[in-house]
Write a protein that binds this DNA or RNA. Structure first.
Lengths: 226, 226
DNA sequence: CGAACAGTAGACTGATCAGTCTACTTTCAT
DNA sequence: ATGAAAGTAGACTGATCAGTCTACTGTTCG
């Protein structure tokens, strides 16, 4: 592929994506982005207007990656739907192996944003819904008896893989996730309806008041009313 | 329980924990913590010396919560080891239901910290190892054939549950995670060794060069060399 | 040619933040 | 009672950050 010379917008987007993920969004200054992108200060503001808008653009490109996987990469595979679902974890492994993988921009952005209100949660949530929807289509196509539950299980495993890969800096998380997904798919049509009774409520621990005692300096009980 | 009057340290710790999780660590100012805690500026610095040390203390209390679960809550249950493992997800559900649950401090802290170097990753990683170790003990006790894989699967599901709960603001993530964990435990002694071959390498998509095309303003290909 | 356009370089502003410092008040054990 | 310890109130400092502004450079195309 004859890679065209990167436009100023592309350079900014790539630098921002990389730095936001590697060092955090709040911790990344405009000047760092400019230096990494090799672009003048004014260019950033003519193209994006603000740091917030730049972040929105970065979130958009991250979503595009996922859509590409679901809409182009996976459909091109000549295999069963179940294998297509499992192939998603191979794509994840590719992603984790990149030297500039530092977690998912969506998750990281939500993690460091205001959880009440804040547009970040809504934007990231909307993209997440679109991704889960594509996953749901695959699950339904695979003939799952309870597609909604299976979809949510797989979505949760994907998010777990991303976090594990970020925290441990090890792409092997994708393989573990793949194996867990295999277990879910294998149990997909098991006869026995899963028992949902809580062991907790049936035995001892009271709900709604758990404790955290610190063993080091200064005792603390979390969750007890004053 | 006759709750003792909260000490200044406790008040600071609780306020910091809450605000760090709800609004992010970088975004939370010292003044906000002081206001939430109802404590004077100077007291924070006599007790903790810096914002960084306060964060370390918060991470410590979060770890204490997990240790309490594994070392006191779960062992007190009169049930099989597998049910004890599943009960962990009931504890998670309790946690997620709290009105001041805004994700896991460990994960959030790593998500917004520098991924190269940075003490945060090491501290959080060390606590994570201790938690996983306790999980491993349970898994071994349950008689898993390959305890290491099962432990990592469950750890990954736990992390997925935390992120899903944070992003969706819905404690139901714990139940989904519980069901996924049940699948893993059910498949624990399955005869067939899990096939690990990558669908990707066997079919079409080349590893190490995936693309993300944006469909909105400005096209962008991520991962292509210049 | 020359005007419009896109980008560079870097000084500047106002706001905010972590951390320090001074002066005052409360609590409580001897 | 009193003196020390612990806490409050809030001004202050130096650094940093997002965003603006002015002046300059190169390129393109009519």
């Amino acid at each position: 592929m004859k890679a065209a010379r990167k436009s100023t917008e592309e350079k900014l987007l790539l630098a921002a994506r990389r730095l936001f993920c590697r060092a955090g969004i709040h911790a990344t200054g405009i000047s760092q982005i400019l230096e990494e992108a090799g672009v003048a200060r004014r260019s950033l503001y003519t193209h994006y207007g603000s740091k917030e808008n730049l972040l929105k653009a970065v979130l958009h490109t991250e979503a595009s990656m996922w859509f590409h996987w679901f809409d182009l990469d996976l459909p091109s595979l000549k295999c069963s739907t179940k294998d297509r679902i499992l192939a998603l974890f191979d794509l994840l492994e590719n992603w984790f192996e990149k030297e500039d993988f530092f977690g998912c921009v969506f998750i990281n952005a939500v993690a460091e944003s205001e959880k009440d209100s804040a547009w970040v949660k809504d934007v990231a949530g909307a993209y997440r819904d679109q991704i889960i929807e594509r996953l749901r289509v695959l699950v339904i196509e695979s003939g799952a008896r309870d597609p909604e539950i299976v979809t949510q299980k797989l979505g949760l495993i994907i998010e777990g893989a991303i976090i594990t890969a970020m925290v441990t800096q090890n792409s092997q998380a994708a393989r573990i996730a793949r194996l867990a997904a295999q277990d879910v798919l294998r149990c997909m049509e098991c006869s026995a309806r899963e028992s949902e009774h809580s062991v907790l409520s049936a035995t001892g621990i009271s709900r709604g008041s758990f404790h955290a005692s610190s063993n080091g300096g200064g005792n603390l009980i979390i969750g007890s009313e004053a």
